[in-house]
Simulated scan of single mutants.
Amino acid sequence: MTDEIPANHPHYIFKNLKRIERWVINIVYFSVWRKYVKTAKLKINERKYFEHYFKELHVRYYLKVYQGGNYITVDRLILNFLLSRVNENIKILLSSANPYNMAGFVFAIRSQIEINALANKYVSDKSYHEKFIKLNEDRAKVTELDTVININTLVSKMDQSFIPYRKIYDALSLFLHPNPSALGFYAQYRDSKYPDSFGHPIIKKYFDASVSINPESEQWFNKNLWNFLTLLEHFILIFDEINHKFYVDDADKEHHHIFVQATFMNKHQKEILKAINEAASNGEDQQEAFNNIYKKIINEYKLKK
């Protein structure tokens, strides 16, 4: 497993972009994200995976968030939030891999599990966002207003997938909080070799690292790194299933349509006015001329896609 490299699957869409679009994303990767990948304690194939996922996430940001009219919608805000959190999770995890930082490393993986669970909820419940954006987050007022669904509930529902989400999440929680599991990890406690005492972590003169690098710790970090990569793969699959538009209510939907129409008219103003003026000059129906040019432009958009 640790020797594999990213394969060419249909849901990987970076390769399908135009050359100039791929060039832009490559520039961003080399100027911004590559430093995280290079400085982390990674094998060559692991670096390729992180480069691959950075680019696949950027493609989805480019297509789903960046492209569109010069207006903000709930739809773009939600998708931007999901992609931005995943981007942050990757950077936190990579920054925690050299030197080893268990708290940051575990936080990134747990956060990714939670983002996957929320994205999955958006897929299975297409109206969930209508309540989610307005829900009360104050647990003290739980009897007064609806509150957000506990993330543990959403994570538990993910266990229907091929990844043991609940098991991984619970195991990581033991390490993130100041539990005996965390104490044993930092002290390298080994039941089999040292049944009556703690192990012997490397105590360094300079306090520049918190986790001792030894076969046990490296195995633990490597296993969970590949768990994280699996979660990224699953996130992309879930994210691509979110193909419906998000509206808070009917008024928001109506405002969105007005913005779309205004942007469309502004962009194609010359073509539309030319068609209407030519119809007026020839004594033809101007409304019909508008309808025809409108359909023509829409069909051209469809052909491009």
Rank of each mutant, 00 (worst) to 15 (best):
T2Y: 09
D125W: 10
I44L: 10
L63G: 00
K35F: 01
L57G: 00
W33M: 11
R22E: 03
I113M: 00
N89R: 09
V123T: 15
N8Y: 07
Y29P: 02
H9M: 14
P6L: 09
A119Q: 14
G69K: 10
I72W: 13
L118H: 13
Y62Q: 09
L57S: 01
E21A: 12
S84R: 06
V37C: 02
V123G: 12
L83Y: 05
N116Y: 06
G69E: 11
N101V: 09
T2F: 14
F81H: 11
I78G: 00
L57K: 02
S84H: 06
L83R: 03
V65I: 11
L79A: 04
K91D: 03
E21N: 04
K35P: 00
N8S: 15
I13F: 05
V28R: 06
T73Y: 08
E46Q: 15
S31T: 15
L42W: 06
K38T: 09
I20E: 14
I90R: 07
Y66W: 12
K35I: 00
Y49G: 11
S124V: 15
R47H: 01
K48L: 13
N16I: 03
G104F: 03
I92C: 01
G68N: 12
I13D: 00
Y62K: 08
Y122P: 04
H52K: 06
Y29L: 05
Y12K: 09
K38C: 02
F14L: 06
L79S: 00
I20H: 10
I115G: 06
N8Q: 15
M102R: 12
A103N: 06
F50C: 04
I72C: 07
G69R: 12
F54D: 01
E114N: 02
W23C: 03
R110N: 09
N45Q: 13
N16Q: 12
V32P: 00
F81S: 07
Q112G: 01
E114I: 05
I90L: 07
N101R: 10
K18W: 13
F14N: 06
I20V: 13
S84K: 04
Y36A: 04
Y66Q: 12
V28W: 08
S84Q: 10
T2E: 11
A97Q: 14
H52N: 09
N70L: 15
Y36D: 05
L82S: 04
K55D: 06
S96V: 03
E21V: 02
I78N: 11
H52P: 01
I27A: 12
D75V: 03
R110V: 10
N16C: 09
I5Y: 08
S84P: 02
T39W: 05
L83T: 01
V28N: 11
N120Q: 14
E46F: 04
L94Q: 03
F30L: 12
